[in-house]
């Protein structure tokens, strides 16, 4: 993609994107409707695509949240009981109510997970950190957010290294699902251990760069908040407010 041609999404202030994602997540809890969830998800894919990251986004979703959702879907459809039996085999029964419940729950999770993944696809960590600090968040708080976020890419990178090491010791790591699952467990312990050690060293690294020093920071490349962003944030919050109030009125009536 041409860098000088900035997409609309990448021109937005990181906080605006954060507010958007947060509104989306909250709204899902109030509507709890799988059609709304699916529409949201489609919209998120479209947003990622408009920023030239559609493919990468779908790939991330498939590799992470999707697997989790399939598992939860299966578990919920079997565990939830009801009166309309759809399918029955031995001790396993699926009820119509179970399927509905499972569909609603998994689409909700899809939106929540998808929204968080979207935020990091369309926002640079650096920009997000700078704008959070700019809006008055303390370096210690941003540090907590940052180190949580870093655990995942760090684990990904390290797991590649560990897989290599296990392979050279003769552990099969490629092939069908069963082979991969078997390879997964011997890789897990060194991964978790080295991630913990890595986190400690990285904390020292940030400390060494005066990340938590008590001075007003400067910023070479500060993302710019605009009037457009402010209006957009207000619109998003107002829409969310309307949704919540509407929902409460419906409950009371």
């Amino acid at each position: 993609m041409n860098k000088s041609e900035k997409s609309y999404v990448s021109s937005l202030y990181p906080i605006t994107k954060l507010v958007f994602v947060a509104c989306l997540i909250v709204s899902v809890f109030f509507l709890y409707n799988y059609i709304y969830d699916l529409v949201c998800f489609a919209a998120m894919v479209a947003i990622a695509a408009s920023d030239g990251k559609g493919k990468a986004y779908i790939k991330t979703i498939l590799k992470t949240i999707f697997i989790l959702i399939v598992l939860i879907f299966l578990m919920q459809s079997f565990l939830h009981s009801g009166t309309h039996v759809l399918w029955h085999w031995g001790i396993l029964t699926i009820h119509k109510e179970g399927i509905w419940y499972a569909i609603n729950l998994s689409t909700t999770l899809l939106v929540i997970g998808g929204a968080i993944a979207l935020l990091f696809k369309i926002t640079e960590v650096e920009d997000l950190i700078h704008s959070l600090e700019n809006s008055g968040m303390s370096p210690r708080a941003t540090y907590v957010i940052l180190s949580t976020l870093q655990i995942i890419p760090q684990m990904k990178m390290k797991s590649a290294v560990i897989m290599d090491a296990q392979r050279s010791r003769g552990v099969e790591t490629e092939g069908n699902l069963m082979v991969r699952i078997k390879a997964f467990f011997p890789s897990l312990a060194p991964l978790v251990l080295s991630s913990i050690v890595g986190t400690e060293e990285r904390a020292i690294t940030l400390e060494a760069r005066a990340f938590t020093a008590n001075v007003k920071k400067t910023c070479l490349d500060m993302p710019q908040d605009s009037k457009h962003d402010k209006v957009l944030r207000i619109v998003l919050l107002v829409l969310l407010g309307i949704l919540i109030v509407g929902r409460i009125i419906l409950w009371i009536l």
């Binding site: 640079e124 650096e126 940052l146 870093q150 890595g198 060293e201 990285r202 020292i204 690294t205 940030l206």
Partner: peptide
């Protein structure tokens, strides 16, 4: 202070 492992000495923040 500079230590052994280059990987953990990258802040992870800068692009």
């Amino acid at each position: 202070f500079v230590f052994q492992n280059p990987f953990t000495q990258i802040s992870g923040i800068a692009k």
